[in-house]
Design a protein around this nucleic acid. Structure first.
Lengths: 148, 148
DNA sequence: GTAGGTGCAAAGGATTTGCTTAAAC
DNA sequence: GTTTAAGCAAATCCTTTGCACCTAC
């Protein structure tokens, strides 16, 4: 079963961000919620097209921008020049681990020390205000598969 | 004074990576070494042009690819759709802090716990093999400037 | 009824590539 | 002398935008 397939209509509408909720945006949000892992805009477009016939790419780009603004989607890097996103409705500060085998994504707590504990940055005279962290590795299934 | 202006010819030739060391690549390497912080390919191109007249952008792209391959340059993110690089000849595993005020960059030790200590990733069933981390903040000079 | 969303197609812009000439080794 | 790099321009390809029409609210 897919991770979010039970995501209900109300949650999807909220996930769309501010503004009107069109049939298209709802379909795009549903597709995003059902993605197995990190995905590019055109992968999302393909997937959402099964739901919404005739959906344009530009519409997906606009919907993705809106969902990214409101925090429903998060950028987790890129692959072959295409930006990768994950569906992410968790609150609070956290990061993601991406499986390099199958693309599956999991949220993880931020493992960085708080405050001034980033000693070497402080030594260099910097006050750290923000950071980007993405972990890569193998999920349980892919690890098992590669061990065989 | 600039951070690396003393970088000598031998070091620059090595920094170019494998292959032949042309006048152009040497100029590009010198320009990269003298960049104050993170830079895009076209900023590097502009800078290197002062040294090497008539330098083509494609040449810079090819040189950057070569230097990135050999570890002399590292990607530290992007700005307005342009990939950002830093000159980085430090050995060993480390990351960078980028000043959001002036673009200055400093290398820092990796603050992540080693091995299986990434508890929440392990709990999610992942074996972490690699990570990308970039810190953002203000350098001493910019902090002081903004406090005034 | 109206502001905001959609589709289409064209524009934009970073990066890559093909090809001929020049230079490193 | 060979082989690899440079320069130029055209090609790619992701992403954004303009515009006329449609629809959620």
């Amino acid at each position: 079963m897919t991770q979010h397939q039970e995501t209900n209509d109300a949650a999807l509408r909220k996930a769309c961000g501010s503004g009107r909720v069109s049939t298209q945006r709802l379909g795009i949000a549903r597709a995003a919620a059902n993605m197995a892992g990190a995905f590019s805009v055109d992968e999302l477009h393909h997937s959402a097209c099964e739901d919404v016939a005739g959906l344009g790419v530009a519409t997906v780009y606009r919907a993705v921008a809106s969902m990214t603004d409101c925090g429903t989607l998060t950028v987790v890097g890129e692959r072959d020049g295409r930006t990768l996103y994950v569906w992410c409705t968790d609150d609070g500060h956290h990061h993601h681990v991406i499986c390099t085998g199958c693309g599956k994504v999991a949220g993880i707590d931020c493992p960085l020390p708080k405050g001034d504990a980033l000693v070497s940055a402080t030594e260099a005279g910097f006050t750290v205000t923000r950071h980007d962290l993405t972990l890569y590795g193998l999920c349980a299934a892919c690890r098992e598969r590669s061990a065989r």
